[in-house]
Amino acid sequence: MVARPLRRLSPGWILVAPFLALVLTLFLGPIINVLWLSITDPEPGLGNYAALFAEESSLARIIWTTLRICILTTVISVLLGYSIAYAMVHVRDSSRSRMLALLLVSFWISVLVRTFSWLMLLGRNGLVNNSLEAVGLISQPIEFMRNELGVLIGMVHYMVPYAVLPLLASMQVIDTRVLSASRSLGATGGQTFWRIYLPLTKPGLIAAALLVFIISLGFYVTPAILGGGKVLMVAEYISVQLLVTLRWGTAAMLAALMLAGVLALLFVMSRFMKLSTIFGGART
């Protein structure tokens, strides 16, 4: 593109400006309000943030629970997603579209429906436990649900399609001749995968991991139901502080912290690579 100094504001901007202003006001306004609330409610100062470092702070524990579950969910979802995407690019076209259809169907099912389906399937008197008991493999029901394991199962199931889609996109554009070249130069299948294929899919891997991790941070319904009340994650805690205990300062502080965390994550990633390639921007 030829660099050309803009002497006058392009008329296009004037057309867009009202909507831009609207979006900015509607989007930034509430965010600033939340940040403001986090340092003014119940009293001005950094008291809400200091509470994070208080001794025996339940906040620190809730944040740790959230991070632990989100990291585990991300790792498992991306591993599963990678194998599914890998399989999808290597099967015949007809099978691929069938796999994609199945993936999208599960992608579109509401999170509540999925959550309750897991309860029916893996609950104490669920299909799996009842069958295992009937054939005598177990005498006590296995506790899949209403604990951290249940939350992980529910979250991974929800997040796998989010991991597959970016990975699939990045795998589909790989030039397979590179792999043939690697093999013809004497590399084994394993070496070709680890040294050629995996590095080529790195942008997809990072995109998938980021996407899964960030969405996982805000999970509310799944932990609340499958955790049996004992797995308290940040999103649910924020909702309780807003609606039940009226600690809006605490809620705003946690929201600000999550926002900052996500932005920091994106910033760190941007140091290593162009974010636009991750999110499917034009390849240059």
Binding site: S58, R61, I62, T65, G229, K230, V231, L232, Y237, V240, V244, T245, L246, R247
Partner: peptide, 14 residues
């Protein structure tokens, strides 16, 4: 005292 009670309870069960 409800706000404090709820938070203490959540802390105890989570």
């Amino acid at each position: 005292n409800g706000g404090d009670a709820v938070n203490a309870f959540l802390d105890a069960i989570s």
